[in-house]
Write a protein that binds this DNA or RNA. Structure first.
Lengths: 191, 191
DNA sequence: TGAGTGATGACAGGTTCTGTCATCACACTA
DNA sequence: TAGTGTGATGACAGAACCTGTCATCACTCA
């Protein structure tokens, strides 16, 4: 055996998730997390920027998935169609781990600081899609508008999925929400 | 004279704004703010929940303005038209204090924690519009979709206004961005 | 004149997060 | 096999944020 148990980062994430779920984010100290993981406080901050970040390790994956979806879309597809397909791909990916996703969301939703972090991560996803759209030739502000609209749609669909029955799949809720948005916009005054 | 100088809350906000602008948010301690305002640290936290909140006193006004705009809109107007008019009213209100708005934005944009707080405040504005729309009869999820789309539009327009030349007025940028969004959506595949 | 109210001061203390240096296992090289 | 990095962790100190608690004092009102 080595001097240290392997996978310190993963053990910290596991311990944090457990403790946040058991006793709430606010009532959990970093000391408790590191004690459960068999490490010291200082080491926690070597792996995660702060006490919140440990819940957001999945964001990088989501960013890459969205960027790749946009980059790989057919060249002739419109910006909004591309964005729609990208967020749908993300929705499908989350649906695969719906249990874990719901647990994590319950923790995040219960705390204002965590909701703040969640929102800036979502903004980062919009940035990633904006960049990817620009790469494939969509000019500004169309790229940003399409990306932000797609993220807004995702937010609404996700919230509806969380509140809704367990049977409904996130991609389905997203598609339904998208159709609802088109309906809402169809009723606006033509310009 | 009373025991204390009047308007402790305002003096704290003024001192904080000055110091954040002079030396940055992170390099400013609450102790420095209260020293400049002639108060103690403890009193700062009696007026503001945390070090960030002092920059967001305007949010409540914005919330009320949006809610009132939505509530006062003609009954026959569509949800998206109502939302569009509401965010345009907010844009006009901000344009009246563009100098101060730009200064505050420079401070907020320079710091990740402050950007997080900004995003949750924007989410609060979307919540307020959603509630107001529901009050006037718009069902879910249309209410939330319209509100989130309006806030997404506002975000994009605001960013473009900040980056753009001083001559352009925020409401004009917002209208132009709105038209751009309709163009982007017009190109999507019909369903 | 005295009681009540509200804002502030004073103080202690927990928690988060950072800086710094020491320690130790492992890999690589001569 | 011995020596030499290298990288992860431990140990410790400390600044800053934020909260709880009680005392103080001006103002108001009966």
């Amino acid at each position: 055996m080595g001097r240290w148990e392997p996978n310190a980062r993963g053990r910290l994430a596991q311990a944090a998730l457990e403790l946040y779920a058991e006793q709430g984010y606010e009532r959990t100290t970093v000391g408790e997390i590191t004690a459960r993981a068999g490490l010291t406080e200082r080491t926690f901050y070597r792996h995660y920027a702060d006490k919140r970040e440990v819940l957001f390790f999945g964001t990088e994956m989501a960013k890459e998935l969205l960027a790749r979806s946009v980059a790989d879309a057919p060249a002739e597809a419109s910006a909004m169609d591309v964005v729609g397909a990208a967020v749908e791909a993300l929705a499908a990916r989350l649906q695969e781990n719906s249990e874990q996703v719901r647990l994590r969301d319950a923790i995040v939703s219960a705390n204002a600081e965590l909701r703040e972090r969640e929102l800036i991560k979502l903004a980062g996803l919009a940035d990633a899609m904006t960049d990817a759209l620009r790469e494939r030739g969509t000019p500004e502000p169309a790229a940003r508008l399409a990306a932000e609209t797609g993220i807004a749609l995702f937010k609404v669909a996700f919230a509806r999925w969380i509140d809704g029955p367990d049977q409904s799949a996130l991609p389905d809720v997203l598609r339904a929400s998208t159709q609802e948005l088109w309906n809402v916009l169809a009723e606006r005054t033509p310009t």
